[in-house]
Each structure stands twice: as structure tokens, then as C-alpha cells.
Design a protein around this nucleic acid. Structure first.
Length: 376
RNA sequence: GGGCAGAUACCAAAGUGGCCAACUGGGGCUGACUGUAACUCAGCUGUCUUUCGACUUCGGAGGUUCGAAUCCUUCUCUGCCCA
């Protein structure tokens, strides 16, 4: 993987860049749709390419390991071959599942013992094993195995958790460096910065990660219960330390506003389930604000779903029709909403990139943040 | 014409003397959702009130009772059976 820093904003830390992988290029800042089990829920890859214009998607180590399983993925020749997505793929290591499946796992120095949410069977995840699994999946960008510390953790817990993540990072890097890609393309490995909401821990973690001299870095453990302002502060602290010439990936974030605020603070890559999950639950993000398609007020609103939208569904269908689909619990409702939201997110980061190039990012962003947070 | 069963909130359906403004499900309304155990979850759904609470309800009318959705009389309507 190769990263070229292209433009740097004069008035902020926002920047544009180009990531080159063996599966194609990624223009940053970028939003990466989440495709946990090898599928972006409700959105076909044809739509993902032509409507959403996604450049890279996510997969998840824990979920793919449980189903279909490593054996099948290897037989298929990796996830790209298996699901026929020929653009870049980034896999999360399962670190987030340490957080979200906390009631079915046990942590220890060696790793984490999970109980499968599917059949209850026991599985051990270690930093080494998650590297091996991601080798088998064949992700272009692999993530270190970390503990995603809750935003509400106290200092002592956060410190211990961060130190464990650091020890796991060393082990993960070691295994990564002593193994090779199983397929005919190269893979890279991103460390993850933790440290919860504590400034000194974040600094320490960023320095530790940066010292590993990898091709890119991730900021984890944010948007997990702490106030947004605190998240922004942490991003500033971390990005002062992470190398400028490497991409920075803010994991799991977030709302359109979160993304613009983070871009302004020097983040290049994002992923979040929000456009798809909230879309399936009736929430639409637009350049004019947020709307709940299930609300009664759209019942007889025959205007397009999003007059400024870039996806064809935005103009083809009316709000009244989409509301009807949601109320009737039609699968098409979720598909349309997911396509719309993802296309909106991708257009948002594309616009951000454009305005960084133009040099008026901060002005544009200030206006957008007000509009994006509105409730329609 | 006769017999039997039934009528409860938007719908369906519990409740058969006080713990009932009334279980539950559906529907409706509103909210939540941030590296996806999520087509999920939560709240509200008689009226007034921010809350406390107050008031009016269980087909209609009348009655028994300290007290009735629940018991009695009668009327109306619905379903089934017999002529």
C-alpha cells in the first residue's frame, strides 16, 4: 500500500491524499461502507459501485471467521473472489467485538475467548490469530487486534486496557511481518491508537503506534460513549503525533457532522454502520438535515427523496412512497434508504475533498455542519 | 316464529362484584441507533394535565349494591341451530 499526501488545507489540518492498493486507488478523505459478513447490508455491489461510488468496503474478522469460516474463504481464493468485490477491502480485527460482545467474552493476556453469538461455541482470538485470519480473508488493509475501551472507562482501566492493546500490537506486527499474503496481492497492517478520553494516554498510545512505522494508523475507542467534543479533542491530540505522510483512519465514526469535524482535524478514513443501520431503521441523512422517513408528515409529500441527492433513487422515488415502503415493512425501503445514505456519505467526503483542494474547506464545513444536524 | 351464544378502547381479544382506564397482540404515533448478535430496540396510544392527579368509559336504558365491564330487567344488534 502506498499513500500520497496531495493537498493540505491552509486554515485547518484537513488534507487530501491518494491510497494505492493492488485492488485500486482510494481518494481521501474517504468513507468506507461496512460489509461485516462480506456484504453491505441491503446494497448490491453493482449499486455500491455505480450509485454509491464506494472505493473500499469493510469486512469483519470475527464474523467471517464464524461464517462462512476460514476454510471456505481460502477455498474461494479470499474474500475478493468469494464476494466478487474487486476493489479494496479493509477488515476489522474483531477488536470491536471485544467491546460489543462483552457479555459473551473473557479477556486475558493471551487474547479473548469468545462465545459465538451464532451457536455458543468457544473460540480464542489472539493478536496472532487475527492476523492469520485476515491473511486468509485477504484484506488489503488489516487491523491490529485491540481492546476497544468504552468511553466511560476510568483512568486505571483505560491505562491497563491501552497497555494490553500495545502488547497485542507488538505481537500482531511480529506475526504480520513473519507471514505473507496468501494470494497474489499485498496486504498492509494498521496499528490502533487507544487511550480512551485521557490526554496523556492518547499521546502515549499515538507515540507507541507511530514508533512502529507502519503504512497507516487507526484511531480507535472513540464514539463509544464519550461526548463528541471530547472525541474531537482526542483526535487533535493523536493527529499531532501520528506521521503526516500516512493515512489516519478514525474507526467507527460517525455522523456526517462527526466526519467533517474529524476531516478538519486531519483524519483521512472513516467507516460507520450508521448510514446502513439507521437507514434500515428509517433515518435519512441529507445535505439539508436528517429526516425520519417513518414520520407521519411524509405521508403525502410527493417531492423527491432528496432533490440534491446523487443516487438515482433520490429522484426516482418520492418521500411519500418511501414512507409507504417503510410503514409496509418492505425490503425495498431499507435498500433505497441504504443506497441513499451511503451515496450521501460518499458525496459528503467527495465534497470535502473538493473544498480542501479549492482551499475553502473551513468555510464550507462551517455551513454544512449547521445544515447537517438539522431535523427535518 | 322458537332456541342458544355473544356485544369490551382503531382492530382482535382477556377480564365474570372492589387490586380496572381495563392483560395481551396487531395497528397507529414518537424516539434511539457511531470499527453491525440490529428489517432492531424503547416509550406513548380514553379526555384534561408538565407531574401529582382529576374526570368520563366496557352495545342502549333502567335496577340491585357501600361499590358494577362483571349481577338482575328490558331494548337494540350480531352469529349459529331448529322451524
Amino acid at each position: 500500500m502506498e499513500f500520497t499526501l496531495q493537498h493540505t488545507d491552509k486554515n485547518s489540518n484537513a488534507r487530501t491524499g491518494l491510497i494505492k492498493t493492488d485492488h485500486g486507488e482510494i481518494k481521501t478523505p474517504i468513507f468506507m461502507p461496512v460489509g461485516t459478513v462480506g456484504s453491505v447490508k441491503g446494497v448490491h455491489f453493482k449499486e455500491l459501485k455505480e450509485e454509491v461510488k464506494a472505493q473500499i468496503i469493510l469486512g469483519n474478522t470475527y464474523h467471517l471467521y464464524l461464517r462462512p469460516g476460514i476454510e471456505i474463504l481460502e477455498q474461494a481464493g479470499g474474500l475478493h473472489k468469494f464476494n466478487s468485490w474487486d476493489k479494496p477491502i479493509l477488515t476489522d480485527s474483531g477488536g470491536f467485538q471485544v467491546f460489543s460482545l462483552s457479555n459473551t467474552r473473557k479477556m486475558h493476556e493471551e487474547g479473548v475467548t469468545f462465545r459465538s453469538h451464532i451457536d455458543g461455541s468457544k473460540h480464542l482470538f489472539t493478536p496472532e490469530k487475527t492476523v492469520e485470519i485476515q491473511r486468509s480473508i485477504g484484506a488489503d488493509i488489516m487491523m491490529a487486534f485491540d481492546e476497544c475501551t468504552p468511553g466511560t472507562a476510568d483512568y486505571n482501566y483505560a491505562k491497563k486496557s491501552m497497555e494490553l492493546t500495545h502488547r497485542w500490537l507488538d505481537r500482531g506486527i511480529k506475526r504480520f511481518d513473519e507471514t505473507e499474503s496468501k494470494y497474489n496481492f499485498s496486504q498492509t497492517f494498521f496499528p490502533i491508537v487507544q487511550g480512551c478520553v485521557y490526554e496523556d494516554l492518547r499521546k502515549q498510545s499515538a507515540e507507541f503506534a507511530a514508533s512502529k512505522n507502519r503504512e497507516g494508523y487507526a484511531i480507535g475507542g472513540l464514539a463509544v460513549g464519550e461526548p463528541a467534543e471530547v472525541m474531537y479533542e482526542m483526535i487533535v491530540i493523536v493527529n499531532e503525533i501520528l506521521p503526516k505522510d500516512k493515512p489516519r483512519y478514525l474507526m467507527g465514526v460517525g455522523t456526517p457532522v462527526n466526519i467533517l469535524e474529524a476531516i478538519e482535524r486531519g483524519v483521512d478514513m472513516f467507516d460507520c454502520v450508521m448510514p446502513t443501520r439507521n437507514g434500515r431503521n428509517g433515518m435519512l441523512f441529507t445535505s439539508e438535515g436528517i429526516l425520519n422517513m417513518k414520520n407521519e408528515k411524509w405521508k403525502n409529500d410527493f417531492s423527491p427523496i432528496d432533490i440534491n441527492g446523487t443516487a438515482s433513487v433520490d429522484l426516482i422515488h418520492t418521500k411519500a412512497y418511501l414512507r409507504h415502503l417503510f410503514v409496509s415493512q418492505e425490503l425495498l425501503a431499507m435498500q433505497i434508504a441504504s443506497i441513499h445514505n451511503l451515496a450521501f456519505y460518499l458525496e459528503l467526503v467527495r465534497q470535502a475533498r473538493h473544498h480542501i483542494e479549492l482551499g475553502d474547506f473551513s468555510v464550507w464545513k462551517k455551513e454544512m455542519v449547521v445544515k447537517l444536524a438539522r431535523r427535518l
